[in-house]
């Protein structure tokens, strides 16, 4: 029983990374209609930035959690203004290819600058060690990651559903023509939303830094699972991305525990099953086909 609980907690902690990053992916897809393949690379940049800030400026994890998302927001804005916006009016495939190419460029640049063996990262003292709750051993950091990402997800959800900005963004996502007719400048929100999505990926990267190998290629595999997460949750659905993120974390953990060889396959089997039963994903709305 203890083992099952332990796996569940580990699955949720791993799911936190997926949830945060998938949230960014979902928001970008919702507002821009862009399938951002570079999301894994943005996640990697977040982790690399945290490691570099620690190494050069001695900025601890706490500061990185604040500074890196801001930097990544700026980077996202630059990418949207310089590259993505020019292809928005074309078939979505063009931006998919653009972000794929961007991934290759970013990964190679990081390799050139920082090599492939990875960068060291040290956890701040208070987050080291672990709790022992009736036999379930819980590293403090895993718990922190879990709570922190949950808080961010709830915050984003509140902003989206309760605030005026959120309403405008949702209206721009769901009924752009109607929103325009009501006098809302939809285009104005495109750039900040892209930056925000990138910042979330960067934030997931910072959280991953103490926990995972910080290498140029750390985002590659991550991005693939991320797409499964978004498809399971329903493209563009915020709640769906978060729920599916944690769900995939759990599937991965229990897969690893009971059938290690098939751990990753289970995620895609789950995806295939969900597409069969609910083509729009768990929380996706049916798209009008007309």
């Amino acid at each position: 029983m203890n083992a099952v609980l332990q796996y569940a907690v580990q699955g949720l902690a791993a799911g936190s990374f997926y949830a945060l990053a998938a949230l960014g992916l979902a928001v970008i897809f919702g507002v821009l209609g862009v399938v951002n393949f570079a999301h894994g690379a943005f996640y990697m940049l977040g982790a690399v930035a945290a490691a570099v800030l620690l190494d050069t400026l001695d900025l601890s994890l706490w500061w990185s959690l604040l500074v890196v998302p801001v930097l990544m927001f700026g980077f996202g804005v630059a990418v949207e203004r310089l590259l993505v916006q020019w292809l928005l009016r074309l078939d979505p495939l063009y931006n998919f290819l653009l972000t794929f190419g961007l991934t290759l460029v970013l990964v190679e640049l990081v390799k050139q600058r920082y090599g492939v063996s990875g960068l060291p990262y040290e956890l701040p003292g208070p987050l080291q060690g672990r709790f022992d709750l009736a036999g379930v051993v819980l590293p403090r950091y895993q718990l922190f990651v879990l709570l922190f990402s949950l808080a961010i997800c709830v915050l984003v959800w509140l902003v989206m559903t309760r605030s005026r900005v959120g309403m405008i963004v949702r209206a721009s996502t769901e009924k752009p023509d109607l929103a325009r007719a009501l006098g809302i400048n939809v285009g104005r929100w495109v750039t900040p939303v892209f930056g925000f999505g990138v910042a979330l990926a960067g934030l997931a990267g910072v959280l991953a830094a103490p926990f995972r190998a910080i290498t140029a290629e750390m985002g590659n595999n991550f991005a693939i699972i991320l797409f499964a997460v978004v498809v399971i949750g329903g493209l563009g659905s915020i709640v769906g991305a978060v729920v599916a993120g944690f769900l995939v974390g759990l599937v991965e953990a229990f897969g690893q525990a009971y059938a290690p060889t098939f751990a990753q396959i289970f995620i895609f089997v789950l995806m295939a099953l969900i597409i069969l039963v609910r083509p729009a994903g768990l929380f996706g709305r049916k798209e009008a086909t007309a």
Binding site: Q10, E217, N221, F222, Q256
Partner: peptide
């Protein structure tokens, strides 16, 4: 056995 490459070893280690 674990997948290769792989990022998340927490569950394998618990096991």
């Amino acid at each position: 056995p674990t997948p290769f490459p792989n990022e998340n070893f927490a569950t394998f280690l618990t096991k």
